[in-house]
């Protein structure tokens, strides 16, 4: 059964799951978009998929393995250069817990 409607609260819940902060106005707009795109999704209900296997991937490959070998790690300085905040050895993140 394909749901055909979604509430604004549902949309707010999905935004929390997706880790996207949204203003009231953005939630309204997203709700409008959901209602419109769900109409298109609802068309799938008309398709008989009884006994049809899902396609998760176009290639029928499974269990691809490789040799477990030691390789050179990437350069730390180079990786830290992209960090919003770093101390030369570690990524730094803001404090999220109060001091004791």
């Amino acid at each position: 059964m394909i749901p055909v409607s979604v509430t604004r609260d549902d949309v707010a819940h999905v935004a929390r799951l997706a880790r996207l902060a949204m203003s009231e106005q953005e939630l309204d707009q997203m709700h409008g978009y959901f209602e419109a795109i769900l109409e298109h999704f609802a068309k799938l209900a008309a398709v008989d998929t009884e006994g049809v296997e899902p396609t998760s991937h176009p290639l029928a490959r499974a269990n691809v393995t490789r040799e477990d070998c030691v390789t050179e790690p990437m350069d730390r300085t180079k990786l830290l250069a992209n960090a919003p905040l770093a101390d030369g050895e570690c990524f730094l993140v803001p404090q999220i817990m109060e001091d004791e």
Binding site: I2, P3, V14, V47, T49, V52, E53, P54, T55
Partner: peptide
Amino acid sequence: MTGTYALSAGYYDAYYLKAQKVRT
């Protein structure tokens, strides 16, 4: 947002799995 919705609890079968079957 739509992707998260389609994969979320209660909607996975109705949306994502259904889409994968129609993809077949």
